[in-house]
Design a protein around this nucleic acid. Structure first.
Length: 483
RNA sequence: GGUCCCGUCGUCUAGCCUGGUCUAGGACGCCAGGUUUUCAUCCUGGUAACACGGGUUCGAAUCCCGUCGGGACCA
């Protein structure tokens, strides 16, 4: 069997988004699974809308996701001469022609067809123009586009995902394949490029199904062999329509900034439309490279479910080593102004805080608001928060004083979770519920109604800071009682 | 409007090709309980689907036809 070659061919007209990544991923996986080659082609023929910053966005994010392409990426803007050669050839062979119809004329044609209940399409007005006539008008500078003569026939192809798909090309009309010799259009460049890069399998979104018959016709006209097609189901938004800018920012950059891991994106997207045929659903990129198959691809579109996405992310965050997680959290802590450098000392302290919140994180950006109390000089919270359930200020105050006394008595060298727990728990058990002692303590240390446990927080905070926070809480309650 | 594609729990899906083992399985979510000072994790249980109608068959989520619904593309 010949080598399998796939490609991802984005237009650099915007940031890389999740729908595109899924397409890139499936192309990548199919190539890897079959020991083939995965290519990247930048489709930048639309000069107005293509920007180099978007190209950079695409390359850097694919790299971040580890969807690496095997050969130097190609750029359509570098290939204008090649397209021109093919365009001239089609013109010379009479398979394409210049069309001088104005937009107004085209619109009028369309209107009349529609009002007669017919399918709107180009009726071929300019098709019969003689070659010399065309040449003369081009020389004269008349505005023209290049149309490809669409052969009317029933055509079908065997889609690797959906099976046989049929079309009646008579409904197409002669299609525009270039604005001029130096400005070829999408359906035309794709066919030329896929052949030149020896692509064997075109794997793309199902929104391209209507383009396929046009491309097949073009292949035939250029004398090129047909490739295999696999049309993927679309990724949908909550409203069941194609995921797009309309639904907000779905760029990789956005999710990356929010603290979603590449592993999350890969795993989640792989399972959107594909499954291994059994119940497993946790897959690394490497595992997917082994397991992937076009046969297990879903036909219907799949909604991008944020909750499931978050669940995958919390899973992969929990799988990280503390060192990795700390490193990944540093930029977020820095951005929130909680730390100002990344010295070893800062990292050491930060990792203590991060360790306590690893299993509470859904995305890295949440870290700052969870651990801010580790970095603040004074906490600000309402004194009412210190009171547990039906406790009074009186009992709250004495509970805090009890904690303070017991903890003060602990030696610096005994400041670990086990010793603290051994000191406080027996005391807490004396109450009808541990909360009477532990809730005020935890709030005094963190200033929050939800946090990690008081013992581990105290350890991470250190003895000095812990005691002073308890003292501050006592002062707070005392003052309010004094009034 | 025309063409094409699709239709299993709220969501992602297994099962469909090769009808019976499906009183339809798993996961996310949600609900309840357990662990727990809180939150989270973890454990247990629960909730919830074969779009509809007809046909074929002893038997249909699975095969056939139709209807309805959704989407994509072009306009």
């Amino acid at each position: 069997m010949e080598e399998i070659r796939t490609r991802f061919a984005p237009s650099p007209t915007g940031p890389l988004h999740m729908g595109s990544v899924r397409t890139a991923l499936f192309n990548y996986l199919f190539a890897k699974k079959n020991k083939g080659t995965f290519l990247l082609r930048i489709e930048d023929t639309d000069k107005e809308r293509s920007e180099s910053r978007w190209e950079e966005d695409i390359l850097s994010n694919l790299t971040w996701l580890k969807l690496l392409w095997d050969e130097k990426e190609t750029r359509q803007s570098d290939r204008t001469d090649i397209y021109e050669k093919h365009l001239r050839s089609l013109l010379e062979q009479g398979k394409a022609y210049y069309c001088f119809c104005s937009p107004e004329e085209l619109e009028a044609q369309r209107q009349s067809l529609v009002s007669n209940g017919k399918t709107p399409k180009y009726i071929g007005t300019c098709r019969s123009l003689l070659a010399q006539e065309q040449e003369k008008r081009i020389q004269r500078g008349d505005r023209a586009v290049i149309r490809f003569i669409v052969e009317e026939k029933h055509l079908h192809f065997d889609d690797l995902v959906r099976g046989r798909i049929e079309f009646d090309t008579a409904l197409l009309g002669d299609i525009v394949i270039a604005k001029d010799l130096r400005t070829p259009l999408y359906n035309f460049t794709v066919v030329v490029d896929d052949h030149d890069t020896r692509i064997t399998h075109v794997i793309r979104g199902e929104d391209h199904i209507p383009n396929t018959p046009k491309q097949i016709l073009l292949q035939e006209a250029l004398g090129l062999p047909r490739v295999f097609y696999a049309h993927l189901p679309l990724i949908l938004a909550e409203d069941r329509t194609k995921l797009s800018k309309r639904h907000g920012d779905n760029s990789v950059t956005r999710f990356r900034k929010e603290g979603y891991l590449p592993e999350t994106i890969i795993n989640f997207l792989a399972l959107l439309g594909w499954n291994p045929g059994d119940d497993r659903e946790i897959f690394s990129l490497q595992e997917l490279e082994q397991e992937f198959s076009l046969q297990n691809i879903q036909k219907g579109g799949a909604i991008f479910n944020m909750q499931r996405f978050d669940w995958f992310n919390s899973l992969y965050i929990r799988k990280m080593s503390l060192a990795e997680l700390t490193e990944a959290c540093l930029p977020h802590l820095q951005e929130a102004g909680l730390i100002s450098n990344s010295s070893e000392e800062t990292k050491q302290y930060a990792s203590k805080a991060v360790a306590l919140y690893q299993e509470r994180l859904q995305k890295l950006s949440e870290i700052s608001s969870l651990v801010d109390f580790f970095f603040m000089e004074t906490l600000s919270y309402s004194k009412d928060l210190l009171t547990w359930k039906d406790a009074t200020e009186d009992t709250t105050q004495s509970a805090l004083q009890k904690s303070l006394a017991l903890l003060s008595a602990l030696l610096e060298s005994s400041w670990d979770k086990e010793k603290i727990s051994a000191t406080l728990l027996p005391e807490a058990e004396k109450e009808k519920n541990r909360g009477y002692l532990l809730w005020p303590l935890r709030v005094a240390l963190t200033g929050k109604k939800a946090s990690a446990g008081p013992f581990e927080v105290a350890v991470a905070l250190g003895k000095e800071k812990s005691l002073s926070r308890i003292q501050e809480a006592i002062t707070m309650v005392t003052q309010s009682r004094g009034v």
